[in-house]
């Protein structure tokens, strides 16, 4: 499983000048795009389709967070996302360990996991709704079904390629099988599992939103659909921005936790 070590791209490891350069490049690019967007929207955009950034920011206050219905929808999505993610983590790691811990289990079951992972899950949405209903349960279930697979796959991948030398070393020192798992296998798999967790975060959000968009009558997804269908792009983009911030915040939280577990790599 290919995992990208994003910490290498983080600004923290660079000298100050370079860090400044990176930061200013990033800010300039984003500002430039926003200005382009603003100019385009003001001059050529059709009012029902594109809103200039200034309008979007304006909509953030009164339309989105001023409306209690929208406010509770954002909160609802956030809660659903949190619950779905936590369930994905618990279920994914448990199943991953179960499948990956033994050679026979891994060889026998891993292809089945990969097969299930490959199914485009949108096709299962009607079924999920039939089973779990239109409410939060259905959305959480669909979020979990998206989030659980990257975690299972990365947990299994994380258990492979444990250095046989370290295992032999531990055994020569008298480590039991459980001790080998606790002190050698678990620390070895942390980085890979966290890569899975971050991927799962995005996937869970996707699952929850898909359910909201297509079938539900609550949450952010529902309101994005309403705004789009009523040609009201400013609050639509405002909602999307809120969503993006939510995703970034949770991703950052996961990254912080990861840093605590991988101090030895820095």
């Amino acid at each position: 499983m290919a995992t990208i070590d994003t910490s290498r791209f983080a600004a923290a490891a660079m000298p100050n000048e370079q860090r400044l350069g990176v930061a200013s490049t990033r800010v300039l690019l984003v500002l430039g795009l926003l200005v382009l967007w603003e100019v385009y929207a003001r001059l050529f955009g059709r009012a029902g389709m594109v809103a200039p950034p200034t309008d979007v920011i304006g909509a953030l206050g009164p339309t989105v967070f001023g409306d209690p219905k929208v406010r509770s929808a954002v909160l609802l999505t956030f809660v659903e996302l949190g619950v779905a993610f936590l369930m994905s983590v618990a279920l994914g790691i448990a199943l991953g360990l179960l499948v990956g811990i033994g050679e026979i289990g891994r060889r026998g079951l891993f292809p089945i996991v990969l097969f299930l992972y490959a199914i485009p899950q949108v096709v299962l949405l009607p079924l999920v709704v039939l089973i779990f209903g239109l409410g939060p349960a259905g959305k959480i279930a669909f979020g979990v079904s998206h989030g659980v697979f990257p975690i299972i796959v990365n947990t299994i991948a994380g258990m492979r390629n444990v250095s046989p030398l370290l295992v032999r070393g531990a055994e020569s020192m008298g480590a039991s099988r459980l001790q080998v798992i606790r002190y050698v296998v678990f620390p070895h798999m942390v980085a890979t599992v966290f890569a899975g967790l971050r991927l799962a975060m995005t996937m869970t959000l996707l699952g929850v939103l898909l359910a909201e968009l297509f079938v539900s009558t609550g949450g952010i997804g529902y309101f994005t659909q309403v705004y789009a269908e009523t040609f009201n792009p400013a609050p639509l983009f405002a909602l999307i921005a809120t969503l993006a911030l939510m995703a970034v915040a949770i991703n950052e939280l996961v990254r912080r936790v990861e840093l605590r577990f991988t101090r030895w790599k820095q």
């Binding site: 370290l166 032999r168 070393g169 531990a170 070895h188 030895w264």
Partner: peptide
């Protein structure tokens, strides 16, 4: 052993 079996973590 030939290579270090110190646990890197």
């Amino acid at each position: 052993f030939q290579e270090s079996t110190l646990f890197p973590w």
